[in-house]
Design a protein around this nucleic acid. Structure first.
Lengths: 343, 343
DNA sequence: GTGAAAGCGCTAACAT
DNA sequence: ATGTTAGCGCTTTCAC
């Protein structure tokens, strides 16, 4: 019907006119817990329905200075772990009546431009599961009271708030599991070389192995770039057809790489896992629990981490001040399945 | 420093004051292509940087009536296909300078409340990859000139715009492939019984089989609920340990279910695929191309579908009117790998 | 090219 | 409980 192009739609003024009340009454009718009589509210709601009125949150954000939106910044969704993380954040935030802006940042991309966009939209908070924050941007966010929390990553010298899994401890756990199962030679498939997550897991794993009397030369390193194909090709290239070069145990720094490694081992060498080579992962994604893998891994408790992140954002509490430099580490935990012998 | 709680931050007025210009000049300085001298613009940008000024998009949306945001409504991210779809939309929209609101709708949940939230945020458009739209909501969106396009789904009697893959034709393609390979008995693993996507693929598959002289009794149906576990358990339950009951060919209505079926077949019966049973999928997700599967499937061309969707939304063209009832079907295409013999 | 002034649709005091 | 009024931070005529 309307040939006009402007986003039309009734406003609270139209509704007020139809219901024969003031415009503020309309506002109150749509505000839970506002002072308004049941009778008047019904009349207003009725008028609103007739006009297909929908309150304009943009306009209200302008006055309230809260947009009820949160930005979630993601890197690669090729790692299913982050898909589950996204899902958890969206579900939780949506249940709180908040909307989620999803951003993706290609690897290595500068994030400042992204953060700028995030800030323009007056988000109430931002969650970074990828990318780095420049000091300048961190300052701007701090100035504007926009809480930011880094999820499973941190910037060594900075005072940004972070929630992460105990990646270092998890690496140690895996080393212990391998050692207990009698492994003496090892390979690690590493993720993003710049990522603290991968670094910490690698460090925990290596240190525990060294403490267990393993020599540095018995710990191979393979670059897997955090993705399935990286790990798959990485082990293929590393071992060629030289079955004798295979270690006793392989640690995939995350599950999806462990899965890639398993597939490569089976395809190229037709190996038995764990009889011929044992494999361990990290994350505990549901995909790793499936039959062809039944991967023994270290669990990152997503729900706890998500809760902690939301908590740290302090969206509900207007007096909340995001303490700088808080670093919450959620303990990780061994999940035993079939890829490492036990007992 | 600031103990205040209000989202502070410099405004264009502050910047104007510091730069010694009018507030409108500041606005122009941040508007590409506005009338302003290079010299003045630089001065303003400089002042803005000093004050850590970031333009408030919320405020500008209020006047321009365009928010540069788009809502993407998703169902379950357990199907990797939709993860890739999300990724494609976010990447494309982000490149256009638009932000993406991500919503998830649990299965069976009424979507009206969700759409209401979407509308409140004055999105410039919405993409539904899940859930149904009530007529009332469809009308409201139409009234307000908010274009909506259904992605890979449609409401039979409605005039909503839709972009979808040729699911029916794809089903036929798969039936033909099986027939050509000599299969005479079949099973289909179906997805959401209410979803048009699953229904259409099932219909195309069945009709082609019937045309090929196959009897209805030779086409088993298994409910897989669109997810890996559904398919895995579905075939386990259906065939028990009765290897003789297995058909020649199994069609997973989507790749992730085909993968679940393959795993079940291999685990329970230690079957060879395709020697003992052939398997086909639909979607062509990268996961299905991995070694343990090498799944022959029907491709949904995500990029084309995403382009068509964005196109239909017509976000850039202010005169664009979303034609009701447009139904764009993107052709599907066979992708041959190793799970159906060829020649 | 530039500034002044008038809103955009709403919420938040402030009266009543 | 309800109406009046004054903005929120910006874009957009409209003069100059």
């Amino acid at each position: 019907m309307s040939a006009s192009r402007k986003r039309s739609g009734a406003t609270s003024i139209d509704v007020a006119a139809l219901a024969g009340v003031s415009q503020s009454a309309v506002s109150r009718a749509f505000t839970p817990g506002a002072s308004i009589t049941e009778e008047k509210q019904q009349r207003i709601l009725e008028a609103a329905r007739k006009l297909n009125y929908v309150p304009n949150s943009i306009a209200s954000s302008l006055t309230t200075k809260r947009s009820n939106t949160v930005a979630v910044i993601l890197g690669n969704l090729d790692n299913p772990f982050y898909v589950h993380v996204l899902q958890a954040f969206v579900d939780a935030l949506q249940a709180q009546g908040r909307q989620v802006f999803t951003f993706t940042s290609k690897h290595g991309e500068t994030i400042d431009e992204l953060i700028d966009r995030v800030l323009r939209y007056q988000v109430d908070g931002a969650i970074l599961t990828a990318a780095q924050l420049s000091t300048r941007m961190a300052n701007i966010c701090h100035d504007r009271d926009v809480p930011i929390v880094l999820f499973n990553r941190y910037v060594p010298g900075s005072d940004a708030s972070v929630v992460r899994c105990d990646n270092y401890g998890g690496g140690r756990l895996m080393a212990e599991a391998f050692l207990a199962a009698g492994a003496r030679t090892f390979a690690m498939i590493k993720g993003d070389p710049m990522g603290t997550t991968s670094q910490d897991r690698v460090r925990g794993f290596t240190e525990r192995l060294l403490e267990g009397g393993i020599g540095r030369g018995d710990i191979l390193e393979i670059e897997g770039a955090s993705v399935y194909d990286g790990a798959f090709n990485g082990v293929l290239e590393r071992f060629g057809t030289d079955r004798a070069a295979l270690p006793d145990a392989i640690f995939g720094i995350n599950d999806i790489m462990a899965m890639g490694a398993m597939d490569a081992l089976r395809q190229r060498f037709d190996l038995g896992i764990p009889e011929d080579v044992m494999v361990g992962g990290f994350d505990d994604i549901p995909e790793g629990a499936r039959w062809p893998y039944r991967l023994t891994t270290v669990r990152q408790p997503i729900d706890l981490m998500v809760d902690a992140t939301l908590d740290m954002l302090g969206l509900d509490d207007p007096t909340h001040v995001t303490e700088p430099g808080i670093d919450r580490q959620i303990p990780s935990q061994m999940v035993w399945r079939d890829t490492i012998p036990r007992d």
